[in-house]
Amino acid sequence: MREMISMIVVLTVLTAFSGGLLAAIESGTKDRIENQVLKFQKAPAIQAIFPEATNDPLAERFTIKAEGIELQVFPTILSDGSKAVAFETKGTGFGGPVGLMMGINLDTDKIIEVRVTTHSETPGIGSRAKDNLEFVSQFSGLGMDTNFAIKSDNGDIDAMSGATVTSKGVSVAAAQAKEIYQKLKPEIVKQIK
């Protein structure tokens, strides 16, 4: 009996202590990690999507909370004066979540460009979604009435050969972006003004 109690006490104290320690470190590094993700994942994607931005979309980012969704939005003004936004959604690929940054022109409701951000896909296979622009470039110029599923699911997107699961993950993220955009557009427009 004594032995059992000591086992329970030691394990409980140990796990409680390590849980507390980790929570403290997590909250201490949270802001830094967010900044690192912003710097190494989101910033390059946004620069690629809005090469001719006349403002700094990263500095002007804001967060929208509406319809039960929390969304980080990067607004920009293109060189022809039209307004655009970029935001990130996630789909599930082969090795975990695949982040997709989508830039949409607010005036025409058309996609400017999309880029894959965080992912853990197989190098050389699924990672082509990020490294080889051939796949993501087919999203450019598409309207919000497009069916973003891949062709084998009766959609409009050509999957990458050999990387169907990754392609599906990206298309799910794109479909989700479309849904969010349609729901939140009024809110986005309001916040930009």
């Binding site: 590094t29 690192q36 710097k39 190494f40």
Partner: peptide
Amino acid sequence: LLMQAYTY
């Protein structure tokens, strides 16, 4: 956590 924060 430290690697994510300092050597991303």
